[in-house]
């Protein structure tokens, strides 16, 4: 890739255009000069108590006051009752591991992390949660009891993760 970039720079100077030959096909490529950086603004205002809860080490979610359905991830509206009267309830931070994977080939935006384990657990309250799993993935399998812990990640912000319960 570095060599490719150097070839482009050289070609701009010597040939007059940002071009390079594709290694496999030998076909000439125009190497795009325009880069796009994507970073979204995502509204969390209507589920702000979820983040407030995490600050206190709690896992909160929404429950419809009318029909009683528990939603996780939390959501503003109940589609069953078509009302937005939700109460915030605290989830028990324990459950059972349903499945897991270890992500070796990571997206570039996760390059600062070592290979990580992503798991889905069913909490004792009945809802499922997707999160990273702490520890050696070879020592766990579906059916393992896990708990939810909230801690600071490498990037510095708070997030929930799953931790196997010993014994």
């Amino acid at each position: 890739m570095e060599e490719f970039k150097k070839a482009v720079e050289r070609n701009i100077a010597e040939y007059g255009f940002p071009v390079a030959l594709d290694e496999k096909t030998g076909a000439m490529q125009w190497v795009d000069m325009r880069k796009l950086e994507l970073s979204y603004l995502i509204c969390i205002d209507n589920i702000a108590p979820f983040f407030e809860g995490m600050r206190e080490g709690k896992l909160l979610t929404t429950k419809c006051k009318k029909c009683g359905e528990l939603f996780f991830p939390p959501q503003k509206d109940c589609p069953n009752c078509r009302v937005s009267e939700m109460e915030w309830v605290e989830l028990k931070k324990e459950g059972v591991l349903e499945t897991l994977t270890v992500v070796f080939v990571r997206p570039p935006s996760f390059a600062m992390h070592d290979p990580y384990t992503v798991a889905i657990a069913k909490l004792d309250d009945g809802v499922k949660i997707t999160a990273w799993l702490r520890g050696d993935p070879r020592k766990v399998k579906p059916g393992q009891r896990v708990r939810v812990e909230i801690s600071r990640r490498k990037e510095g912000y708070l997030m929930y993760e799953l931790v196997p319960i010993e014994g």
Partner: peptide
């Protein structure tokens, strides 16, 4: 995007 990719880097 938010609940799977942003925080847990699923591929």
């Amino acid at each position: 995007y938010f609940w799977e990719f942003e925080n847990f880097g699923l591929t």
